[in-house]
Amino acid sequence: MSIKISDISYKYGKKQALHNVNLELCQGFNVLLGPNGAGKSTLFSLLTAQFSIQNGSICFGGSSLHPPSRELFKKVGVVFQNTTLDLDLTVQQNLTYFAALHGIGKHTALEQLQPILSALSLMPHLNEKVRQLNQGHRRRVELARAVLHQPHYLFLDEPTVGLDVPSREAIIAYVRQLADTGVTILWTTHLLDEVQADDALVVLCDGQVLLSERCQVALQSMQKQSVLDLYQSLTKKVVQAI
């Protein structure tokens, strides 16, 4: 269930956003790091078929994303960078709406949601309108929505930005649990403290992949003490070159 990204390039008009990106995202927790404008969101949009592929290919366990197969969407869960919930619907209405979009009936959806809602402490908020929830709980609802159809691939675009510590911890802990069950997760962030030693780490800068390795291995091979040192040494080089 790995994702193979081969020779992906992407341009916005004349501006090159991604240069020949080659990557393999394996089962488990993959972290995509990069400064603003690195091309993370472009890569994310390509992986979630929001953008059409211009050059190269993306394969999900052998199935090509070009053209995107609707069948593949059954296996993909996404938490977008900005809230995409309907603010005037309740938490339950938002979740059952999404379940129905995936062909899951209300009763089945609510059954499937029970453990997810409990794990994310959302049960008491089920009948509240999303507009009444704080940012942290909205994010949890988005995560619950992204996993309710039991996806094989889960993409999260900066899911913890602007959240308080308990919400961040709850989300990270839940996603790491999923990673342990064999889901392929791509966690896009620029918060370095979210990276753990055994995570697969991808560093993207100026549209190019600077590193794609297990974090621990990269730290050892580049003789760095922390992810911050590693990240700075990699991205500085590029910034100087620009």
């Binding site: 078929a49 900005n82 979009l101």
Partner: peptide, 18 residues
């Protein structure tokens, strides 16, 4: 603009059907 269209189009149902 709000992003709900992205959610709709992530459905496995054919786009024409949606």
């Amino acid at each position: 603009e709000m992003g709900s269209m992205k959610v709709l189009l992530m459905s496995p149902a054919p786009k024409a059907f949606l």
